[in-house]
Amino acid sequence: MKRLALLLFLTIGLASSALAATPEEIVKKSQAAFFYPGKDFKARVMMKLISPSGQERLREMTMLRLNTGEAGGEQKYFMYFFQPAEVKNMTFMVFKYPAKDDDRWLFVPAINMVRRIAMQDKQASFVGSDFTYEDVSGRDLADDTHELVREETLNGKACFVIKSTPKKADSAGYGHKLAWIDKTTWLPMKEEYYDRTGRTVRLFSADEVQMVKGFPTITKRTMKNSQSGYRTEVSYASQDYNVGLEDSLFSERFLRQPPKKWIE
């Protein structure tokens, strides 16, 4: 009986502590779990773009990420493309800064050229997919107001449902977003993006979660555009954390000649 009381006490304590978390804290934890786990990350990414008629286009790349600051802070991304053939050997590098525009460089192998590219719009489609750059590397916490709408169970997982509304209407391609955040992993299990009139624009679902070196990781995900009927499925063929990426990798030298051990 004492034990039961203790358990009950603990459960209430945990639940109330979770309840006591502000919506900002929940989103912050979720971003840390989703975009920042580990010191670094390496994944072989298969991205399938599927049209309403079923035509498929495939993007295959290696994505490397290095955290250079705290969770929510600066990061460096490096992408190497295997497919389609037209962009094979192309590399792309992003220095992500939370409060200002990112720096982006592209390497075009056909003419051996490295260029900075202007891409201020983080809402822009990532390589033609239904994911935006922000979906890949995260959105600044302070760009939205966050509200805990309710708590509910989704596919057997206890979730916070958070409503995020952009502070500046033109800073996002949606009016507001609902996110179902798993209370144990802090990963978003589902997201619904609405336009300003309240219609759904895009739907995100986490289709598979694996534990990788102790970090819960979404290894399969889908983004569906409910207006165009297109969807994009992303799966990791392999993934790993704390692989020892060095800062020097994120340089023009390796954009031109990415070391094999990091891209394979």
């Binding site: 202007a118 891409m119 201020q120 809402q123 822009a124």
Partner: peptide, 10 residues
């Protein structure tokens, strides 16, 4: 000078 004015327009 290079600038993106809207999505996919540079």
């Amino acid at each position: 000078y290079q600038r993106q004015f809207w999505e996919d327009f540079t």
